[in-house]
Design a protein around this nucleic acid. Structure first.
Lengths: 200, 200
DNA sequence: GTGAAAATAGCACGATCGTTCGTGCATTTC
DNA sequence: GAAATGCACGAACGATCGTGCTATTTTCAC
């Protein structure tokens, strides 16, 4: 009984659809994601795919959430097993680097920011909530590093989180346009200087 | 004779269309720009608008170029009247700040990067060329500041250009999601630290 | 004023969009 | 075995997409 046709059939099909949808959205963004195209990619009918979500917007929200889960799983969770403070913060950045390397040809979370930052609606709200949450995690890790004396006492936590995020945006930007290798080198150099500027 | 109804009619109508197209593309991106919607906004027929460009892709390219021109006019050109070196570089950043403040609800140039960095075609090429060109201008201004002794002799020009660009990406990102005021303050603080780290 | 030329509108096309609805086939439950 | 439920399919909907082709209007030179 490899195929769980009992319960779980619906959930597992939904998972499969979201897998394909996430891949498509990496290329075309959440706004470029269409149900017909997705159905063709999965090998289902349009109505079959549609029935799993009820509306295109709910599909887009589900894909956004899929991206968030993958990001947390790949970037944040492994870093939480590192000791608090600078080691954990550096682990976050290292995992984020790897994430960025794998997503240089398109990241759903970042393109969603571009697509929805000027509008309103459920997708905008979802993007804002998600970005605010991630920034908060960053700040928590930084605050611990300060408390443990790994970073200067007068460290501006929100500022450092902003600086880190900006560098990762720069990495993604340059990697997508000019290639990851050169962009990665520059970003690493920038991080070296950034750590030095806040270290005790 | 304010309205050039002479042989400039075509060009002036084209300009009007591009004005509206640029505004629409700020909200919906170049991929979200549709000819029907644009025609309704301008007050013309679809075919009338279409005839000015010949294809949707050529329209998108024209809008991209419109964005580039406006950016150069508002950010680069005024700065070129400042004395070479750090004053000019700071003027570029200041003008860029103002540009970013006005475009916090959507910038065609940046969303185009998100939309086309993972594909290929004329729009991708146009985006890459434009971004590479702007980075080059940044580096020229930085190199002059180094040569004039305003920045350290061992300044990594490409690295500093990357750092500047990354901060501006961070500004745009945070301004769009969390509001310009807070984002602007953080970005200014980050720039202060950046200048200090490279200054003689 | 008149005729050539340029600019715009009108209309139609095939394709695709998101969405709805009825139906059939499995599978589960009685 | 009969009844009920879950899931996906296929057809069709009105709308909009980009793009041609043909009139009609507007503009400009004479």
């Amino acid at each position: 009984m490899t195929t769980a046709t009992h319960p779980g059939k619906r959930a597992s099909t939904r998972e499969t659809i979201l897998d394909h949808a996430y891949a498509l959205a990496r290329r075309d963004g959440l706004e470029g994601l269409s149900i017909g195209n997705l159905a063709g990619d999965v090998g289902m009918s349009k109505s079959g795919v549609f029935a799993h979500f009820g509306s295109r917007e709910d599909l887009q929200l589900a894909v956004l959430d899929t991206g968030r889960n993958r990001f947390v799983t790949q970037v944040l969770l492994p870093a939480l097993q590192q000791p608090r403070g600078l080691p954990r913060l550096r682990a976050i950045v290292a995992n984020w680097f790897e994430w960025s390397r794998e997503h240089q040809s398109g990241c759903v979370l970042l393109s969603a920011v571009s697509e929805y930052d000027g509008r309103d609606g459920a997708l905008h709200d979802g993007v804002v909530r998600q970005q605010a949450g991630w920034r908060d995690e960053l700040q928590k890790a930084i605050a611990q590093a300060v408390k443990l004396g790994h970073l200067r006492d007068d460290t501006d936590v929100a500022l450092l989180a902003f600086q880190i995020y900006a560098l990762m945006l720069g990495l993604h930007h340059d990697a997508g346009l000019f290639g990851f290798d050169e962009a990665g080198q520059r970003t690493r150099a920038a991080f070296e200087r950034l750590w030095r500027s806040w270290q005790t």
